[in-house]
Design a protein around this nucleic acid. Structure first.
Length: 481
RNA sequence: GCCCCCAUCGUCUAAUGGUUAGGACACCAGUUUCUCAAGCUGGCAAUACCGGUUCGAAUCCGGUUGGGGGCGCCA
């Protein structure tokens, strides 16, 4: 039998890390079994469902490269299907009309709660006769449709947790539809899982307690019950469920901040699953090869940003600069036309030079969004305090002298040899048997204006001969003042 | 309050009856270096508690405690 699994989000919020993780486990399981991964949008709640959220979910699943195999199903487009099932359940007396008012129910619920009981429906409308129901409907009384729940101990099997026992007498007859045309989650979800031939329901642990209710629907309709796999939850730093309402960041926010999809996927797959050997860096393709449902964890995982940051740095370092370049927003630094960058101060950087800059910068940042911050001196005129040029206790005159020496040597270096290796050699020769800092430090400050930066010879190559000389002159003049 | 789930370093986790309880992140130190970052080397750090089963328990069983989830005409 072909494995068929689904990710079934409701479009009532942006796709967040927890949702992406559920989608990922479904996706990986499907791929590992040569199965089918389905995306279903559960938009039965017309009040809260928004197109904006649906678009966000689709867009970000695509960005994460979690591609679904069949056209997207929207519950709002399948009302006929639910209608038939609701009718059948009523006809066979598995479900019934309930005319109790919301106020009445709320009152009873509060009463039960204060008495320390689990709130449940009394079953007041359970045994209304057909004619009573007809009369009430004729009178246009407000109603809902409830499922008849037997009072017995119900046992079901969870793939990870084994047998779970729930006392149905504590559950009570629950609402499956607002009316003949409007199913609620519990019903719509079950009907779709059945008609879409879902074999494994892989979803969050928060659904464990509703599972018996859903299985009851399967039983009433004589449908094959799928295998249930309840994933442990992802908890926030405060150890509560990571959810939209708790301000969990959306995937699109992570994207905007400069996280790479590879890093996010690697991060979330380790939340509740681990490959057999001690391995932290794992791609989705590798994970698919060795994925086994059995190795899924049962305990919740606390979300921890520093590991995500570590992974992002790792993947950023691995990524060739030409793949990073298109991800960068150059508008902060000048006009980028796809080939070269023209800075506000008139400096121009070719595509090749931008790649070199990215190579230097990616060692110093773990996010794409602030990648160029550490090397912004390339793109603008900058100032720095005179004292920054000084190295240890070496006096100003010596530093001026050294900068002049460097300048002379570099001036003599031919344009086409103005490369990092050659420049480094010159600096090494000048500082031979001396404290290297006397030469490297002031040049580095002259070229970057910063206390911390990449190596001066790398900066010089990218700046090019004339800009390098210009910046050295600027430093010398600053010292002479 | 009631029901359900869970329990190994601060965090993510490995070890499915026999290991000095392993790895990764974070943190700290050393190394490299003109600076920063990266890299490399090392260090700190855990089986929640109490009983039981067993020659032997992180692992199996019971209880306690702690954490989480659910108890909607939300999903």
């Amino acid at each position: 039998m072909t494995v068929r699994v689904r990710f079934a989000p409701s479009p009532t919020g942006y796709l967040h890390l927890g949702g992406a993780r559920t989608a990922l486990f479904n996706f990986i399981f499907a791929r590992s079994q040569n199965g089918v991964f389905i995306l279903r949008i559960e938009d039965t709640d017309k009040e809260r469902s928004k197109k904006e959220f649906e678009d966000d979910i689709l867009e970000n699943l695509n960005w994460l490269n979690l591609k679904w195999d069949e056209p997207v199903i929207r519950q709002s487009e399948r009302t006929d299907l639910y209608k038939n099932v609701i009718k059948q359940l009523i006809d066979q007396k598995s479900a019934y009309y309930c005319f109790c008012s919301k106020e009445e129910l709320e009152l009873r619920k509060q009463e039960q709660l204060t008495r320390g009981m689990t709130p449940r429906y009394s079953g007041k409308c359970r045994n209304l006769t057909d004619s009573e129901v007809r009369d009430n409907l004729k009178k246009k009384m407000q109603y809902v449709i409830r499922l008849r729940v037997p009072e017995k101990i119900f046992v079901f099997n969870d793939f990870l947790r084994g047998e779970i026992k729930i006392d149905l007498s504590q559950v009570g007859d629950f609402i499956i539809a607002k009316n003949e045309n409007e199913p609620l989650y519990l019903l719509a979800n079950t009907v779709d899982d059945h008609y879409q031939g879902i074999t494994h329901v892989i979803r969050g642990e928060e659904f464990i307690s509703t599972t018996p209710k859903q299985i009851l629907i399967y039983k009433y309709l004589d449908w094959q019950v799928p295998i249930f796999v309840h994933l442990p939850l992802v908890l926030g730093q405060d150890r509560s469920k990571l959810s939209k309402r708790h301000g969990a960041k959306s995937i699109s926010e992570y994207k905007k901040e400069g996280y790479l999809p590879e890093a996010i996927l690697n991060f979330i797959i380790l939340l509740g699953w681990h490959p057999e050997k001690d391995r932290e860096i794992i791609s989705i393709d590798e994970a698919i090869k060795e994925f086994k449902l059995e190795r899924l964890n049962k305990s919740p995982a606390v979300f921890n940003i520093s590991k995500l940051n570590f992974l992002n740095r790792y993947y950023l370092k691995q990524k060739p600069p030409e793949e990073i370049l298109p991800l960068i927003d150059f508008s902060l630094y000048g006009k980028f036309n796809g080939k070269s960058l023209i800075c506000q101060n008139g400096l121009v950087y070719s595509y090749e030079k931008l790649l070199k800059i990215i190579n230097l910068a990616k060692e110093r940042s773990f996010l794409v969004s602030n990648l160029l911050e550490s090397v912004d001196f390339f793109f603008k005129d900058f100032d720095y305090p005179k004292g920054l040029l000084l190295w240890k206790q070496v006096d100003e005159k010596k530093i001026i002298n050294n900068l002049i020496e460097i300048k002379d040597k570099l001036s003599n270096l031919e344009e086409e040899k103005f490369e990092s290796l050659n420049i480094k050699r010159i600096l090494d020769e000048l500082s031979f048997s001396k404290d290297k800092g006397e030469y490297f430090w002031p040049l580095r400050v002259a070229l970057s204006g910063k206390e911390y930066s990449p190596a001066p010879f790398d900066l010089a190559e990218i700046f090019g001969k004339s800009r390098t000389i210009e910046l050295i002159d600027k430093a010398i003049n600053l010292l002479k003042k």
